[in-house]
């Protein structure tokens, strides 16, 4: 039942072209889903920060979207939107927007009141306060959220592919599972972890690029 590491490596090497083919599909879904998720999370956070009523109204709904297990809504999404990429991307958006929205909102709210007052005293508009104080002030929390979301995106893509599709690592995984090819399954798992790690590393690089002032702290 548990294949030897050598067998797994061999399966990985032999299957490499097929794996890459499926990886491409999974990555496209993950990146598209994450991009829209970040966008949605950003919009939600900005709206909730700007308007108290919206904050109160959206908060329970957002929490609700996270209490519903992904595996439970994935089949529904497949029924509604078919076996193409769309249901997968929607699923990823639903899972990834949350850490971004929560992180950004926390960031916006934790901004120093005195700094906002100073900006107001300088005659700054709400938009200027947002651009100069709130947005850069929330960057740290944004990237903390993005790190979580990015790993969710890859895993989310694979899970959504389990439930139906034509291509992708999740589809491939169910296929080799049904063939009891454990070595191949482990090769896929291996690949998914590597990709997740790489994506997180990428986010970290982005983080450092986007916040160069952190370097001089040390």
């Amino acid at each position: 039942m548990l294949p030897s590491p050598i067998k797994v490596v061999k399966a990985f090497v032999d299957d490499f072209p097929t794996l890459m083919l499926h990886l491409k599909v999974t990555l496209i879904e993950a990146v598209a889903g994450l991009s829209f998720g970040v966008l949605l999370g950003f919009i939600v956070a900005v709206l909730m920060d700007a308007c108290m009523v919206l904050d109160k109204a959206l908060h329970p709904i957002i929490i609700l979207t996270q209490t519903v297990p992904t595996v439970a809504i994935a089949p529904l999404l497949v029924l509604w939107f078919g076996y193409d990429m769309l249901p997968k991307i929607i699923l990823i958006v639903v899972t990834t927007f949350f850490p971004i929205a929560v992180g950004l909102l926390e960031g916006f709210k934790s901004v120093d009141k005195d700094e906002i007052n100073l900006m107001k005293a300088m005659g700054a508009s709400k938009l200027q306060i947002f651009i100069h104080i709130k947005l850069p002030g929330a960057m740290g929390q944004f990237f903390a959220g993005l790190k979580i979301s990015a790993s969710y995106a890859v895993v989310g893509a694979v899970i959504s592919e389990w439930l139906g599709g034509f291509q992708g690592l999740g589809v491939y995984m169910t296929r080799v599972k049904n063939a009891f090819a454990f070595d191949k399954m482990f090769a896929v798992i291996f690949l998914i972890s590597i990709v997740s790690l790489l994506v997180m590393k990428l986010v970290e690089l982005l983080h450092r690029k986007a916040m160069p002032w952190l370097k001089e702290d040390r």
Partner: peptide, 15 residues
């Protein structure tokens, strides 16, 4: 927006 002020805290933006 008419009178400028300064506090004990410098409030220089770190970024």
């Amino acid at each position: 927006g008419k009178v400028s002020y300064m506090l004990q805290k410098d409030m220089l933006l770190p970024y």
